[in-house]
Amino acid sequence: MPMPRVKFNQDLCKGCGLCVSVCPQRLIQVQKRRLNDKGLHPVYVEQVDRCTGCGMCATICPDLAIEVWR
């Protein structure tokens, strides 16, 4: 089976942290040392291989910054 994939659009992300709070695998973090075009701290996923492709992050994202495949 191919590995699930999650893609974050760094420029749409406002770093609100809602996805961070719902990820059951706790894979998402706000990048405190990076700024995007908006001047906000976008999130990134550590250990992508542990993503199960559940889509919870994308469902709670108010900015459609996340896409998920499985």
């Binding site: 191919p2 699930p4 994939r5 420029d11 749409l12 406002k14 770093g15 609100c16 942290g17 809602l18 908006k38 906000l40 492709g53 559940c54 889509g55 994308a58 469902t59 709670i60 994202c61 108010p62 900015d63 459609l64 996340i66 896409e67 998920v68 495949w69 499985r70």
Partner: peptide, 29 residues
């Protein structure tokens, strides 16, 4: 591979002006 979640065609491809984490964006979607 199948999309579990992808951008809806019901919203234009324009970033919203809402504050970070405001649920207006979720309701729009």
């Amino acid at each position: 591979m199948q999309a579990v979640f992808k951008r809806t065609a019901g919203l234009l491809n324009i970033p919203t002006h809402y504050c970070p984490g405001c649920t207006h964006g979720i309701l729009h979607r």
